[in-house]
Design a protein around this nucleic acid. Structure first.
Lengths: 227, 227
DNA sequence: CGGCGGCTTGATCGGTCTCAAGTACGGTGG
DNA sequence: CCACCGTACTTGAGACCGATCAAGCCGCCG
């Protein structure tokens, strides 16, 4: 626990509110941000732990976080990475079903859960938005299931494609997470992830100026890998 | 399509409503069943298809159904089996994200989605219940992800344990689904499923009087398999 | 310069898939 | 009642992919 951990400042988050919510987004982005407080977390700092009461809902402002479970055999399954703009930590149950850590220094908007669910009781569009966020998580989980039954090549290829799409990158992506994080997300070993990346580079599908910086040379090839 | 397919009778389902909803169940079971109509489906009959408009919500009364996607390489991923009492076909989006078929002859309660979401706008406890059902699906999907990164032995063992729990079976279970269904659910081949079952039988963990009838001899051993 | 964490590469092992028969069971028709 | 058939399931042999074990390399920071 070497990280800086600012106490939430109970005012509007700086910077963010200037971007006003576009109409048609059900107003959640606006509403929730109003009641949120920005918090900073250092690299590898815990944001919440599995089994803890889920007091807050979160939205990434900058940086990246990983949500994971530690299995009884000691392995770690990273259920997802969350990037700027993503909500996370939404629970219907009272406790968090997974743990969450900052991957790198990260700023996160923190909203009190009781406030949000209280508002949702009176505002059916907000209630629906909460449902939609959970349904979005479900869709992502199901995509992930489909990914896990495929070959290592396809898993790594899809991962790169997904990160590129979610960061709105056209050509180059900077991976915030290490190889072990990727491996624990894709259900592979660090060696297999590394080998597969090298293989993509050899095939001219990507370039790797540094291990964290990926240049997508043939995006179509990445997306259409067969096993 | 050889199956019997009764048109929905737009009256209260027979038999079911006599069981009144116990207090504290948020009233959904009661409310939704009131607006539901029972439908019968034959073995392998389609209940809805991926991409179709999600007009209805469903609840299994008897029998069993499988929800699945066909992948672009032709493989089939069964995201889940639904047994009596289970809801399925819940979507936030307008279209079904997966297909659904009856595994055996099955009776299903069918509720009009627009009616339900209309009610949810005015009834926050119903809105919350819809959210809870989706969150339950999410939790199940995440459990499944954890399962998919484990060994074949563990997958089959957990599958048997899960079915036993969900059918409230203490000792013996009747599998409604064939080996291929199990394989497509667990991300294995039919041969591996079969071999693993045989292996459990040889080890005295289960008995297999017939291929669909499983006697659990050592439930603890099934649940605690290591890879 | 030394050390360390993160990453890559190599050699070998093992689990699961693939391909290929073989078996059990239920239904159908003679 | 039995012969036949099709479907579901089991079993076997071999190939292959990814895990494991083990070095080595790179970049960064003290």
């Amino acid at each position: 626990m070497t990280a800086i951990n600012q106490a939430p400042t109970l005012r509007q988050p700086e910077g963010v509110p200037s971007k006003q919510t576009p109409a048609g987004m059900h107003g959640l982005t606006g509403t929730l941000e109003m009641i949120g407080a920005p918090m900073s977390y250092g690299r590898n700092e815990e944001i919440f732990g599995e089994g803890e009461p889920a007091e807050y809902l979160y939205k990434v402002v900058s940086g990246a976080v990983r949500v994971f479970k530690i299995l009884d055999d000691g392995r770690r399954q990273i259920s997802g990475f969350h990037l700027p703009g993503d909500f996370f930590g939404f629970e219907v149950a009272n406790d968090h079903s997974a743990s969450c850590e900052a991957i790198c220094n990260a700023t996160v908007l923190v909203m009190k859960r009781s406030t949000v669910t209280g508002l949702a009781k009176r505002d059916s569009s907000l209630a629906r938005k909460l449902w939609e966020i959970t349904a979005g998580e479900l869709a992502r989980a199901q995509e992930h299931i489909v990914l896990l039954i495929r070959s290592a090549e396809e898993r790594v290829g899809s991962f790169l494609t997904e990160i590129a799409a979610r960061t709105h990158a056209t050509q180059e992506i900077d991976l915030p997470m290490c190889r072990q994080d990727i491996a624990d997300h894709l259900g592979l070993t660090i060696e297999t992830v590394s080998r597969t990346m090298t293989q993509f580079e050899t095939a001219g599908i990507i370039a790797l100026p540094t291990s964290r910086h990926v240049v997508l040379r043939k995006r179509a090839a990445l997306a259409h890998l067969r096993d």
